[in-house]
């Protein structure tokens, strides 16, 4: 409430506000009253060293000071000048942003881990698969193998050796821990069979002749002693009038391969754990 129309002397000492620097009057058509208004302004603007004038000047100083201060304060845009609800809203915004960004970060980290882990685990899986392939290849006779073992040679010029003897020898070797066995040029696998024919012994349909050379990979000392046990292979061979020699070697290579045939009836049952075949 500024100026209640208090009829007063404008003779009093009082200047205020924007006075002097106002530029040219705009409407020259009505010069007289306009000029009186400007005159009033000029008159009021004249400096008068009175108490009220000084008081007004003091207030003006305070106003200018507050104005500049407030402008600067606003330009600083600090949080401290905000109200509680504004602060709460800002805090909510920040919290939501943080939550959203946190979710994003977690998702991206998850993706990154999955990609990295995928690379690692696929390499790992490849390695494991290769290992399993090697193992199974040796077991199934589809892969050549080498390692320490023995070479059992049965020299049987008189043809007394039977399939049963060879089967016994194979069983002894397996009992002694043979991991890969080759008889003559035939790789011995799970479905290897021995038959007696008039021409000699057939192993899986392949005729093998004396001297029978049986290569086995495994613990060589164990297998050699297994051949020597009383009533074992060596003794049986000797009883038949043949000669068997056991040669322990650090390196026995089994190169004969077995050709896998697709099973005609058997079908694999899907593994429950997916551990694979």
């Amino acid at each position: 409430m500024t100026q209640p129309p208090e009829p007063t002397k404008q003779t009093g000492p009082e200047p205020t506000g924007p006075s002097t620097p106002t530029p040219e009057p705009t409407s020259p058509s009505t010069p007289a009253p306009e000029q009186s208004s400007w005159r009033t302004m000029f008159r009021m603007a004249r400096p008068r060293a009175t108490r009220a004038n000084l008081f007004a000047a003091l207030l003006a100083i305070v106003l200018g000071f507050a104005l500049a201060t407030q402008v600067q304060q606003t330009q600083q845009q600090g949080l401290e000048q905000l109200r509680e609800d504004e602060l709460v809203r800002i805090l909510d915004d920040v919290t939501q942003d943080a939550a959203r960004l946190g979710n994003d970060a977690r998702a991206l980290e998850l993706t990154r881990d999955r990609l990295e882990g995928g690379a690692n685990s696929s390499a790992e899986a490849l390695r494991a698969a290769q290992q399993r392939l090697d193992t199974l290849g040796i077991l199934a006779g589809t892969a050549p193998a080498e390692g320490p073992g023995i070479v059992l040679t049965i020299d049987d010029p008189s043809g007394k050796v039977t399939s049963a003897l060879l089967l016994d020898a194979l069983q002894e070797l397996r009992d002694a821990g043979a991991e890969a066995v080759q008889i003559g040029s035939v790789r011995v696998v799970a479905d290897t069979y021995f038959t007696d024919t008039p021409n000699g012994v057939e192993v899986s349909g392949t005729l093998v002749k004396s001297p029978y050379v049986i290569k086995a990979i495994g613990g060589s000392a164990t297998m050699a002693s297994a051949m020597d046990i009383p009533g074992g292979v060596n003794e049986s061979v000797r009883r038949l009038g043949a000669v068997s020699t056991v040669d322990q070697r650090d390196q026995v290579s089994i190169t004969a391969l077995h050709t896998l045939e697709e099973p005609q009836y058997a079908r694999p049952v899907p593994a429950a754990t997916g551990a694979g075949k």
């Binding site: 500024t2 100026q3 009093g12 009033t40 207030l59």
Partner: peptide, 16 residues
């Protein structure tokens, strides 16, 4: 206050 000056009713005490 400026308006009061122009209206001729300005009073410094009232202004303060």
């Amino acid at each position: 206050a400026v308006r009061a000056v122009l209206d001729g009713i300005f009073n410094d005490k009232v202004f303060v």
